[in-house]
Amino acid sequence: MALTGLFLCTFLVGHLAGNLQLVFSTGEEGKRAFNEYAYFMSHNPAIKLLSYVTYISILFHIVDGFMLTIQNKKARPVGYAYNKPGANSSIASRNMAVLGTLILVFLATHMANFWWKAKVSSEKFPLHTYTVYPPMAERPTEMYYTVKGDAIPKEGVIVKEGTKLFIDSKMFEQQIAVMKQMNPGQQLPDMSQMNKNPELGEGYKDLHSLVFAFFGHDKSKQGFPKNDMALAGLIFYVISMLVLGFHLWHGFSSAFQSLGVNHAAYTPWIKKIGYGFAILVPGLFALIPIVIFITK
């Protein structure tokens, strides 16, 4: 429990640092930064390895936690008629299993809302697009932002394998046919000689808009349906972070004690750092969707 718990604490710090980008950089710049970061997190081999360690840690922490709780319940088959546990221990310390189970419920919904949609689901995931206003054009143009930093107009491009951008050859042929009609004499490229499906690049999954849409922003233009349950989602998120805070309030310093680290000089500091961690980390996690929600 202690080792996996402490590892998951480091995971929380990493995850929080990633999330903070959602509010610290704004506009198209911020959106790019976040989606690039998300791409890096899902493609870098070292991060991939780390993510598997995280999955295993979470699973082990859950299974071990349930097993220990069952053993502990068995150790006292008959309870006390009158018990005053508040006289000698904190609420958080006595309810780690309940808090952990609540976090597990949150984790399930959290992964279904974000992780599943972005990484597992076979449903089409909207890609990062932005609007440009060409000086002479009548209307603004929607562009894809690609991994190589290119801008590719949305029109005439089809998406394959989730993120790969290809020329829509049918539309291209139609356009050529139109041009042929308009200028009968002009020499036009022979379509049969061309690669009909040239890959133009790879787009970014627009996780930034997914998050903003989830917490109430209208991102229907980006392909995310408006979430009418945004406030409920926000409240659930904030409460879950409160639960996480209580879990960490006891868990952080408890992990050190379990590993045998107890020292007259260091333990008071470990406890203080643990309390700070328990307030700061879930607090900042909760602040991000609050900021997103009120700026909608």
Partner: peptide, 29 residues
């Protein structure tokens, strides 16, 4: 058939001899 320690610290407070949790950490070590 004793249970597992979850470091609530209740034992240290109720112990009539004031045995410290430090001993549990030493044992874990």
């Amino acid at each position: 058939g004793f249970g597992n320690c979850t470091n609530t610290g209740a034992c240290e407070i109720e112990c009539p001899k004031g045995i410290s949790l430090e001993n549990i950490a030493r044992m874990n070590r």
